[in-house]
């Protein structure tokens, strides 16, 4: 009788588990937050790597993102999925970092990179392992402006309107950057 009851319950009640670690973490439970971290770190790290194009820096930004998430978690209202909330937060951490650090890099990379990023592909050698570059490596070599739009749109699935808001550009600018990124990637992948 007991077993029957249990099986009924097991088949009808969906798992509450992911919600619960987030809720516990929001209430200050660090162990629960570590589980949230473990469950999400690869996703967040991937966003950071692809957005900033530097693995070492991406590791630091990933840490910053989770510290921010911990601080802001009590404010998370569950209006969006937790993962959506967290990924957006990670994107913001990378973009804010760009404002501080990126200026030097942008300057080093020839003005605002946006005009003739093509030169990057022309000049730089393909990545060490490759006769034929894989997409991951090709993304890394994109000029920063095109890379950010490409990652946000084609990898992360944001819409142009959202990207425009995040990056402080127009929706049309976002579309143009995306197209340019795809053309550059195609060129890189075909060589």
């Amino acid at each position: 009788m007991l077993t029957a009851t249990m099986e009924d319950v097991v088949t009808t009640i969906p798992s509450e588990e992911p919600t619960s670690d987030v809720a516990l973490a929001a209430a200050g439970d660090r162990q629960a937050f570590e589980r949230v971290y473990r469950a999400n770190v690869q996703r967040v790290f991937s966003i950071c790597v692809r957005m900033c194009g530097d693995r070492g820096r991406a590791e630091e930004l990933t840490q910053d993102a989770f510290v921010r998430a911990w601080e802001k978690l009590p404010l998370f209202r569950g209006e969006s999925a937790f993962s959506t909330w967290l990924h957006r937060l990670a994107v913001n951490v990378v973009l804010n970092d760009r404002k501080v650090l990126g200026r030097e890099r942008a300057r080093a990379a020839n003005g605002d990179d946006d005009e003739d990023g093509e030169a990057l592909y022309g000049a730089s050698a393909p990545p060490s392992h490759a006769d034929r570059m894989d997409l991951e490596a090709a993304i890394e070599l994109l000029p920063p402006g095109a890379r950010r739009v490409f990652v946000l749109h084609d990898v992360e699935g944001y819409r142009h309107e959202e990207i425009a808001e995040m990056l402080g550009v127009t929706s049309g600018g976002s579309k143009a950057q995306l197209h340019r990124a795809r053309l550059l990637l195609r060129e890189a992948l075909n060589r």
Binding site: L2, E16, E17, S20, A26, G78
Partner: peptide, 17 residues
Amino acid sequence: MCARFVSALCLTAAMAA
């Protein structure tokens, strides 16, 4: 937020067993 604490099955085993 406290969905976790909504027990699907809360069995006070002393009673049943």
